[in-house]
């Protein structure tokens, strides 16, 4: 990749440690990712695969039980893990913003829209109330809220769900961040509003040149929105690379299973495949590859040791022994799913 990374995670791990330290849940384990300026990275995986923990790790807003035992998070060349709490506060909302899973509940019911949209501008840029509110009005206009001036002095309960969603988007871009993390921002919306919102996010991204990390379990959204894709399973990134490359030739059996579980309008002949078994307990992982117990192509090496990240075609990387040049492919049969 020739472009300089805006955000680069190097071997990042995030663990939840129980009160007495006896149970350790490895929610994120040894994750390395990069996002270039203006690019969109999609992160997909089942619930509990560590997507949201990864997002909150980047902003360092984890619950008290969480620890980041290892790794580096380079953002514009600075390691976010080395920053003090006060320095981190100046990053949040200003250089990295995030939209939460349920934007409907993200607005404080007791304060006006104007107050809540203008708040980060006042805190980060020391703007006066009047100028911050003028900016807030422009932001509402940018996210297509009709009669923005009147909306500023209204409260969240006076708005529809789709409008509140766009207001949360406006708060996200209010300080012109370089990176916006969207954690399943459309799951609570119906399909037409979902499509409108995704288009709006794309437009904002183009207009402001911001990088987007899109966390979702909807591969259709990934295909529409993202340039790069990272697939998470049990806290690890099992496969990453350009979206087109992965959709064309998924290298990891889990990715293949995910892709074949999307219903397609075009060919009705193929049956949908479900993935057998349950995701593993993150506090008691099997010794080898975490996906091995559910993997139709697993062989001895998979249960013995964890596969390393192996470079593939077109900057893609995969964590699977099948991709290793001499890992006893013969024993795995033809590796077909």
């Amino acid at each position: 990749m020739s472009t300089r990374a805006l955000l680069e995670l190097q071997n990042l791990s995030t663990h939840y440690v129980s009160a007495k330290g006896r149970r350790v849940v490895r929610a994120v384990e040894d994750v390395s990712l990069r996002v270039a300026a203006g690019e969109t990275l999609g992160i997909v995986g089942e619930s509990g695969s560590g997507k949201s923990t990864l997002a909150l790790s980047i902003l360092r807003l984890l619950p008290p039980a969480a620890r980041i035992p290892s790794g580096r998070m380079l953002f514009e060349g600075e390691d976010l893990l080395q920053k003090s709490d006060a320095e981190m506060r100046r990053v949040r909302g200003k250089r990295i913003a995030m939209i939460l899973q349920d934007p409907m509940a993200s607005l404080n019911p007791l304060f006006t829209i104007g107050d809540q949209v203008a708040e980060p501008i006042r805190v980060h840029e020391g703007a006066t109330r009047a100028s911050a509110w003028a900016r807030a009005r422009d932001l509402l206009k940018a996210v297509r809220i009709p009669s923005p001036q009147a909306r500023l002095s209204q409260h969240p309960h006076e708005m529809s769900g789709g409008m509140r969603q766009r207001i949360v988007g406006a708060i996200g871009i209010s300080c012109e961040p370089r990176l916006l993390i969207a954690d399943e921002p459309t799951t609570s919306l119906d399909l037409t509003i979902q499509a409108q919102y995704l288009n709006l996010l794309r437009e904002l991204q183009r207009a402001h040149g911001l990088a987007l990390i899109f966390i979702t379990h909807n591969l259709g959204i990934v295909a529409k929105m993202c340039d790069q894709l990272a697939v998470m399973y049990a806290g690890r990134v099992v496969e990453q690379g350009p979206v087109r490359q992965i959709f064309k030739a998924p290298a990891h059996p889990y990715t293949r299973a995910l892709l074949s579980s999307i219903p397609r309008m075009s060919d009705g002949r193929q049956r949908l495949t479900a993935i057998d078994g349950q995701p593993p307990d993150l506090s008691a992982l099997p010794p080898g590859c975490a996906f091995a117990p559910r993997c139709p192509s697993a062989f001895d090496a998979c249960r013995a040791a964890e596969p390393p990240e192996i470079a593939g075609v077109a900057n893609s990387r995969v964590r699977c022994w099948l991709a290793a040049p001499d890992a006893g492919r013969g024993k795995a049969g033809n590796g077909a799913l």
Partner: peptide
């Protein structure tokens, strides 16, 4: 534990403002 407090922290507000205002 509510989402609007999470968002207030995501905005980069100082913790004192998150508690006292939101």
């Amino acid at each position: 534990g509510s989402d609007y407090i999470k968002l207030a922290r995501l905005k980069g507000l100082p913790e004192s403002l998150v508690i006292a205002k939101h």
